[in-house]
Design a protein around this nucleic acid. Sequence first.
DNA 1: CATGAATGAGTCTTCATTCAT
DNA 2: GATGAATGAAGACTCATTCAT
Lengths: 210, 210, 210, 210
Amino acid sequence: MSTVTAALKPRKSPVQARSAATVGALHTATIQVLTQEGLSRCTTTRVAERAGMSVGSLYQYYPNRDALLAAILEKHLDSVANAIERACHAHRGKPVCEMASALVTAVLAAKLRDPEESKALYAVAGDRGGAALSARGHARIVVAIAAMLASAPDARFDDPATTGTIAFGALIGPVRAWLEGHAEAGFETRLKDHLVRLLTAYLQTHRSRP
Amino acid sequence: MSTVTAALKPRKSPVQARSAATVGALHTATIQVLTQEGLSRCTTTRVAERAGMSVGSLYQYYPNRDALLAAILEKHLDSVANAIERACHAHRGKPVCEMASALVTAVLAAKLRDPEESKALYAVAGDRGGAALSARGHARIVVAIAAMLASAPDARFDDPATTGTIAFGALIGPVRAWLEGHAEAGFETRLKDHLVRLLTAYLQTHRSRP
Amino acid sequence: MSTVTAALKPRKSPVQARSAATVGALHTATIQVLTQEGLSRCTTTRVAERAGMSVGSLYQYYPNRDALLAAILEKHLDSVANAIERACHAHRGKPVCEMASALVTAVLAAKLRDPEESKALYAVAGDRGGAALSARGHARIVVAIAAMLASAPDARFDDPATTGTIAFGALIGPVRAWLEGHAEAGFETRLKDHLVRLLTAYLQTHRSRP
Amino acid sequence: MSTVTAALKPRKSPVQARSAATVGALHTATIQVLTQEGLSRCTTTRVAERAGMSVGSLYQYYPNRDALLAAILEKHLDSVANAIERACHAHRGKPVCEMASALVTAVLAAKLRDPEESKALYAVAGDRGGAALSARGHARIVVAIAAMLASAPDARFDDPATTGTIAFGALIGPVRAWLEGHAEAGFETRLKDHLVRLLTAYLQTHRSRP
DNA sequence: CATGAATGAGTCTTCATTCAT
DNA sequence: GATGAATGAAGACTCATTCAT
């Protein structure tokens, strides 16, 4: 994530089964090294070793370290964005409180499926090149939420984009706090309830008076 | 921020005027380099150069790179925590909606006083050594919020700590989104309103029925 | 030789032919730099340069400067200790004067095979980490000598360990003086004779009277 | 002891009482730092600090680090050489066995007066600039011993210089072994006896047959 | 004079990347 | 294609030395 823009694309698409397995191994290995050693010690050699291959092979799949990190971050962000887009799409036209509940569920499912991964990638997202990817993912999500909100039958959102940004931020904040360990024991058992309450209350603020 | 705990203390306190200036210059320079180059390119050489001094001087005040970063992060976190503690203290016993408004004001004031700094330090907070400091700051804040909430005359919080964590996370999430540029133009003009509405709605969820 | 104990082991054994050559080149280069520049100027860069390779390659074989120096010192000390152990073993039960002669021969052969190396390594042996290795080598040698002495048919040594220490020290002292250049021209032609005389006389001091 | 030749002279002679005290403090401090930290970590700052003064003051007395080390080594070597010269002078014309005893006594007294110092200075003597000083001291000592030996009434030394070198080396070897810790517990109680025996036996080897 | 902050060249060490085998 | 040794630029950190106060 050091250089800024170009040449971050993976070198080959995993057309063959072997490639897919290899790329998967690299993905897993990267997350592990990231988690155990931190971004700055997440070196190509270490990743390759953990993935059971040589550095040379890693470079067969990614043109450089940043591309590897970007690919993994992108995959994560895409999967999160996809999940949220799907949920938003599925709840267009539903009452606001169902939207809130669905959104919370989708966010938690996406972010807590692999907490290690989610947490590890924050560092990647922060360092230079990751910012652009994060921005893109964030934008997709906000657009999806805004569209869903705009379709609510029982509320009127003057500025769905802003409300979407606030809503997503309000969910992500506590999730991130938990991922980063800033939370009391047992916090995650109450997390969903509180987020639903939080989001529902916020969205109902926009309820239209008949 | 690579090493874990020890030896992160500054070397000398800036007692003399010249020293104070030097330390201040280092502080500013670090934020600038962090902002413009990113954490991984925030090297001691670059910071010293930006601060208009030699590396040697930097090392006169901080025993290593991590200590420099930690010092700056700590200062920031402390100031944020102090501000929030102060606000929480001042609004004990007030109605929930006043608490909400005061908390939003305090958080925004603290985080947006120097947006560059706030943003730059996220990377530092994520990298190994910064996590511990963040955790400490976060804990102080949550404790302060919880204490304030517990004193509300018009609401009853069964689990003030959890509510505090959620409340703070819900505020920080959108603020961070904006700091990191994931927000539409003009977002910040609406930010405060939305956050007050968000937080008030959430807290009033706990209103006691007489 | 600055750090005290751990992590002084070489990184990979030179299994392949190329590796063996590389390690050999490092060995030779280190001795040369040590001789021509002294311990404090025996830097990894200079050694690598002299060996005709890059610093990186040096670090492929040794984890740090001290490990490189330790490896070379250890090899030298081991070869000296081995030679002396062999000589002592071979002369068990022989008359004291044969022992003396054999010991002198062994010490001189071992220390003067490569005088440059012997001399260069004195500095390494003195600096922190080298002391432990030296102590070990010295101990092995004294044990070997003591065992040989204890087996003498024509003498009785009440305290073979002490006598061994004195004997070895008495040989090493003049050898070192010569290696370090503190000796008149032509000294080495007379060295062996004098050492044999010295050691024989000393050991016969312990001759048992029938 | 890194640079080779020039500018190693102290800057001012300790004419005033204060100077003498200062120089003495530096001397002591240097030995302490040398002993506790090793040559490579024996920095001017540390020495000055230990001596209770600022680096600047140190540089008032010595033009550079090497000069400081050289001065201290030279002082030590001179005092050893002086003591031995005195002993040798005092025993001219005496029987060989008295010479041997006197020489051992002188060497031990000189080298073991301050064992820490003796040991610490070996590193200094080994690193570049120290070699020349050591050579000079060694030469003085050998000359003195040779002159004494040549005056023996009961022996004839064909080559007093060589015998002197061997004799001194044979004493220094075991002493050094002890100083460096390569010796069994209680070794020093037996050291003198053995050295006297060693040297007497060696020298009497040259006894003239009437 | 003493002080000690500032300097910056010089060390050690790591790591992304290449390429001969 | 895979491998992993070699490269060397770049970063962290130290320390001899100077000089303004």
